[in-house]
Write a protein that binds this DNA or RNA. Structure first.
Length: 567
RNA sequence: GGGCCAUUACCUCAGUUGGAUAGAGGACUCGGCUACGAACCGAGGUGUCGGGGGUUCGAAUCCCUCAUGGCUCACCA
């Protein structure tokens, strides 16, 4: 068990026992957390829990801190060299070198991520990107793709049952419009701007076709080609799905629309007006009523469903396959939220089982200037164009680094740089550097001299706490400090992954990896690992580097970013 | 006009269950390799946390209000 977890548990047990008469709820005990202190002078670990608990236990924080300290002095003396109380009620912990060695030992020998955290959580189905198959994926889709795929990967790692889907909007007006645009190109008719898709955009998909296609055949082929292209682009940035759902085939043609309409009618939520079928959603708390079936454009034509109708049906279907849903949509789709949620609620679903994450827009800057249009197509900038220039890793990291609530300016020049200014490069370099040291130490040194230690010796020392201990036994304050800070940060990896999963925020993990890389570079500079005069120290530091390499590698893989051994 | 999101250093941005002196990178000035990868590290100063109220021992963080900007308010998806 991690030392911080042990401290938390000790405090919780102590509070429960000491204040057995008090009537406190579980939230209070959950607020007992041991964290990395903000400043070096505040010890190796710290907690604010005396401050948080004071009002519930009706004690001055400083008194409570003393009580807790006195108890922990008894029970944690093996790990804690010293516990300080800082006004108005902080507890700061100074750990023994054995405690640090123990942390490295568990990182090297246990699973980095415990699958207990998400194991008992409700199953989750994440829908993301879900673009229309009517054109190239733009940067907004790219951001959704990157965030969604990272979240799926992170949440899965915590042990939770999670699945991903892409909902193909291949029914409806936009597809008809695509068909009309393609048909004109196919027949060599004049293109009219305004009610059609840009010629540059669809032209590549209307080539090498046989001569006698009808309108529906052509539409279908063009749509499939565009969809396949989207799949290729997504795959190029490591985005894959458990399931691709076609609105047409899996919702419309499976009769889900009729079923949904019957349910809504059964609840008395629909009415007829102007030849259309309406949902009386204003009664549900929406700002106005919504159309479910459009009035026919031709006499005797069947009424077509709106997007909302299919969306409700699809979400009901998803709720049959998972307990909770997460949709990742662009900020321009906010309008959907209320009517969708209210409709599902009216049909007996719990609204809290549908969570929608709205992603703000992405713009592009190149040469210090904002790029509004793609030079290639004259239209929106395609994911493909940017990925060709910067690669998948930089594309992913840059888009993951910002909070989804913030608009982002993708700096294409920065993403192409090969130095510390480019964050993805900086992190990957740390990994390559760690790998290089491990290679040099166990295979052959850069100058051709034989290795200092064998792989077996390193392997053995990874489980030998007394050897790892040596890394903390230095008289040099800088060496000690950078070693401690790196180890503590490493030990929080599992927490960071869980937090990232719970808050649906992959950017916090990306920032953690950046911080971690910085601490490693600092450790590297202060603590020379390979020391021909001191084999034990070499092994001790190699075991820390090994732990770092393992954590960083895992962290990057959760974000679906490569961790190169050489670069 | 209604709704959602934002506003933190000169610039780009981190910072959630309220906690210690508000952070990082860039830009600017210095310093560190007879090289475990200098593709790196270190030192230097910067703030009315958009304005104004409120809640309390304590607010960038919670509440109210105003301002500015983005998105959105279809029988499009």
């Amino acid at each position: 068990m991690l030392i911080q977890t042990s401290i938390e548990k000790e405090i919780k047990d102590f509070i429960k026992k000491e204040f057995a008469g008090e009537d406190f709820d579980s939230n209070i005990l959950a607020s007992i957390q041991v964290d990395i202190p903000k400043k070096v002078g505040f010890g190796d670990l710290a907690t604010t829990c005396p401050l948080n608990l004071a009002k519930w236990l009706k004690l001055p924080p400083i008194k409570l801190a003393e009580k807790i300290k006195n108890h922990l002095d008894q029970t944690l003396s093996e790990f804690c060299l010293q516990i300080d109380i800082a006004p108005p009620g902080f507890l700061n912990f100074h750990l023994t070198s054995g405690a640090f060695a123990g942390l490295i030992d568990s990182l090297n020998n246990e699973d980095l991520i415990s699958v207990n955290h998400g194991k008992d959580k409700p199953s989750l189905l994440i829908e993301y990107v879900s673009a229309n198959p009517t054109g190239d994926l733009h940067l907004g889709h790219g951001r959704g793709a990157v965030v969604g795929s990272a979240l799926v990967s992170i949440i899965k790692a915590t042990g939770r049952d999670v699945k991903s889907e892409f909902y193909i909007n291949d029914a409806g007006e936009q597809i008809q419009k695509l068909g009309r645009s393609a048909w004109k190109l196919y027949k060599g008719e004049a293109h009219s701007e305004g009610d059609e898709y840009p010629k540059e955009l669809i032209e590549p998909y209307v080539q090498n076709l046989s001569d006698n296609l009808d309108f529906n055949e052509l539409t279908s082929i063009v749509k499939d080609r565009i969809l396949n292209k989207q799949k290729e682009v997504l795959a190029s940035i490591k985005v894959e799905y458990d399931k691709w759902v076609s609105e047409k085939q899996d919702v419309h043609e499976k009769g889900l629309l009729e079923k949904t309409l019957q349910q809504l009618k059964g609840k008395g939520l629909t009415y007829e007006k102007d030849d259309a079928l309406w949902l009386s959603s204003s009664n549900l708390g929406d700002e106005r009523d919504r159309v479910l079936l459009k009035s026919p454009t031709q006499p005797n034509e069947a009424r077509k469903p709106t997007y909302l109708t299919a969306d409700i049906a699809y979400h009901l279907n998803k709720l049959e396959r998972a307990n909770e849903l997460l949709d990742i949509f662009g900020a321009d789709h906010q309008g959907q939220e209320i009517s969708l949620k209210k409709s599902l609620e009216a049909l007996g679903e719990k609204p809290e089982n549908l969570n929608i994450l709205f992603i703000q827009f992405v713009s592009l800057s190149e040469g210090g200037q904002e790029v509004k249009m793609s030079k290639r197509t004259g239209s929106v900038i395609a994911v493909e164009e940017v990925v060709e220039k910067v690669g998948s890793d930089a594309f992913r990291f840059m888009l993951l680094a910002s909070s989804v609530n913030n608009r982002v300016v993708f700096d294409i020049d920065l993403a192409q740089r090969s130095d510390d200014q480019n964050p993805v490069f900086y992190v990957q370099y740390a990994h390559a550097r760690a790998c290089s040291i491990l290679r040099n130490a166990t295979e052959s040194f850069f100058d051709g001299s034989p290795p200092i230690v064998t792989k077996d010796e390193l392997k053995t020392s990874l489980t030998n706490i007394s050897i790892i201990n040596v890394a903390l036994n230095s008289s040099n304050e800088k060496e000690i400090q950078s070693t401690k800070e790196l180890i503590i940060k490493l030990s929080y990896f599992n927490n960071e992954v869980n937090r990232s999963a719970d808050t649906l925020n992959p950017s916090s993990l990306a920032h953690y990896l950046l911080d971690l890389a910085a601490l490693f570079h600092n450790f590297y500079t202060n603590c020379r690992a390979i020391n021909k005069e001191n084999k034990e120290l070499t092994l001790a530091r190699l075991s820390i580097i090994q732990a770092f390499q393992k954590v960083l590698n895992k962290g990057l893989s959760l974000l679906l970013i490569n961790a190169p051994e050489r670069m």
